[in-house]
């Protein structure tokens, strides 16, 4: 299992289009991918799940990937987050 912590620095938090793109990215992998914020964990492949977390600017999230392509998944997601959402 892969696990990584990120801080969301985007002005809009995990709300807008970049969040949609992140969900799309996660959907490309077969691994089970989850995102956790303030103790609540949801499926990163679910746009409604992700948005219901209500992560704002400065929020910390933990992403886990578990499955055959977990390494590739985590790498792609890390890139996606660093590009638009945070660090």
């Amino acid at each position: 299992m892969e696990q990584k912590t990120f801080t969301i620095t985007a002005e809009t938090g995990l709300h807008a289009r970049p969040a949609t793109q992140l969900v799309n990215k996660a959907g490309q992998f077969s691994s089970e991918i989850n995102i956790e914020s303030r103790g609540k964990s949801v499926n990163l492949k679910s746009i409604m799940g992700v948005m219901s977390l209500g992560v704002g600017k400065g929020g910390e999230v933990i992403i886990t990937a578990d499955g055959n392509d977990e390494k590739e998944a985590m790498e792609a997601i890390t890139n996606q987050i660093q590009e638009e959402l945070g660090e």
């Binding site: 949609t20 969900v23 799309n24 959907g27 949801v42 499926n43 679910s46 746009i47 409604m48 799940g49």
Partner: peptide
């Protein structure tokens, strides 16, 4: 595209 994403949402 946004509608499709909602339609395919695994949580829902």
């Amino acid at each position: 595209s946004a509608h499709l994403l909602v339609l395919e949402d695994p949580e829902m």
